[in-house]
Amino acid sequence: MSKTLLEIKNLTTSFRIGEEYYAAVDDVSLNLQENEVLAIVGESGSGKSATAFSLMGLHNRAKIEGEILFKGRDIANLPASKMNKIRGNEISMIFQDPLTALNPLMEIGKQIGEVLLLHKKDMSKQERRDYSIQLLERVGLPRPERVVDQFPHELSGGMRQRVIIAIAIANKPELLIADEPTTALDVTIQAQILDLMRELKDDLNSGVILITHDLGVVAEMADRVAVMYAGQIVEIADVESLFVNPQHPYTRSLLSSVPATDFAQDRLHVIQGIVPSLKNLPREGCRFKERIPWIEDTAHEEDPQLHEISENHYVRCTCYQHFYFPEESKEEQANGVTES
């Protein structure tokens, strides 16, 4: 029986634009078990990264409401001094762009050593260095005893991402947040980094929150998936249900807009309109409504809620029951829905 590691309850993160606050993350509830990979998928502006930054307490001037229960303790709005004991220690983060996420003027060894210095006060300088070398070896860098004295610009992108992972796992975190960890990397390097993350997760028995827009990465890594649109979770399910039996119109649209690796499809699905900006988010009714104007208004709920449609599979709003792609006829679609 796995333990619940993280429980997010009604998290709302708002940013101030001018005089008003606008919620970029709007009433998000999630939970994560030990050794589980939860992917949060969405496009830019969906609030997925804002969610991750809220968990780390890294937002500068945001208003955070709701609860973030990490091992039962609420860490939302924790004062910096307390949060600093958790960050880099029990919760750590892997970033998107390895080329900019390391301090260009600091040796690799010192950058890894810093996270040890901050959380393992009893380690000597020599011990920190030795341990940094071990970590570099653990993340698969060749000649770690040399790399430890090098500067970031002397390493390739893939190698730098390994260094960032070494920093993240240095204190054996229980929760690892990976924000688009492979977006900036070449495919073959991406595959290696994903393999490494999977391995490390099993070693450390950590829970992982994987933030990404890449559905391929999700299919490879995740146990469960939450799809976010305009600050809300619109669908959440285990990875197989989500890919095999997607329900929410946004999830379905997204899946059919990815060029697949089989030859069948010759036209990609295009979602109408554009992602609304934070200021212009539709705050009432179904937020996806304006992107699927051919679906009748009555199909949407007035105040869309997440509905459990099968075990642990939740979908927001009722419009999924009536959704069809404009390319298809309505009848075809009706049959499709009853089946599931």
């Binding site: 991406q190 490879e220 995740a222 890919f243 899946l255 697949a260």
Partner: peptide
């Protein structure tokens, strides 16, 4: 190697 590196969108 390149082909193998593409993530498969079918989790099954």
């Amino acid at each position: 190697r390149l082909v193998a590196a593409i993530p498969d969108v079918d989790p099954r």
